[in-house]
Amino acid sequence: MTLVQKHGEAAGHAATAIALLGIIPLALDAFWINLVGKYLAFAFVAIGIVLSWGYCGILSLGQGIFFGIGGYAMAMFLKLEASAPELPDFMVWSSVEQLPLWWEPFKSLGFTLFTILALPIAVAFPFSYAIFRKRVSGVYFAIVTISLALTVNVLLVGSQGETGGANGITDFRTLLGWDILGDGSKRTLYFVEALLLLAVMALAAALVHTRFGKLLIAVRDREDRVRFSGYDTAMIKAFVFSVAAVLSSIGGSLYTLQVGLITPGLIGAVASVEMVIFAAVGGRLSIVGAVLGALLIGFMKSYLSEQFPEFWLFFLGGLFIFVVVVMPNGLAGTLQRLVRFKA
């Protein structure tokens, strides 16, 4: 065993930290930093997918729902602040006279943050525990989640007056009076996001290395044996699915802050499946890989859909096929193989 191999993972985390906190802020201007921040929001989702899909074998095609919970909660708070004391503009356009009751609590930042962290668990845990108890898994779980993503999308688009419909929620610029659109504040936001991401990466890596992490892999590989050994596998799966949901939600709220808008398009079936490819490209078993994948695909998307709009879907579609056929363990897996091969 070489040194690189032994400490490969720690090195990966360290390299990510240096890149995110050192190289990127020094080398790039505010516009690019903001762009990186936007893709990093998806890195949170990708880490969640690595944990639930890579380690525990639960493929959810509905991560967009949780991304939306975080994104919309944050956007609702910002929108209320931006339009106070009047009603948000889109409500006025749809002739909604009074603030809907469920909007009221989002006047408080504390409640909003609480929602971002707690609501995904409140939704994901009971739902997935019930489903896993019934031993619905694999492809069926994927189909159920993708149809839920579709449902939430339809619901958001359909209720124009209360959610902003297809346009989503946008047009806000202050967080507790602090301008979030200026170059300086974008930089601050970026650092907050990067630090949060590094913390999440460390926590996720720690989780994977505990006994519980070994259990996750066991559930993925032979769920029945784990069940026969006396574990409540449904509980294990529901737990990791809830973790993935919270990470998605955090990602969504940061996305809203970075980009300044949230739309139903980010929640639907197509967006939700796209989130899986971040983890797949980076390596479904690698936390560093997930971050790398999110950044890489994000940039490719921006670049290709601007320069060669025709080519983007060919590329994305081809990538799905390529990753499954040639690189089932993604970039990180390929890298690991190379290192081992040379050693």
């Binding site: 694999g138 994927a142 899986v276 797949a280 060919f314 579609g317 990538l319 799905f320 499954v324 089932p328």
Partner: peptide, 18 residues
């Protein structure tokens, strides 16, 4: 490999759409 089939055919669907 059902989950891989799902992802690969999703990729195929994107290619066909384009």
């Amino acid at each position: 490999r059902p989950l891989d089939t799902l992802l690969a055919t999703w990729g195929l669907s994107l290619v066909l759409q384009q």
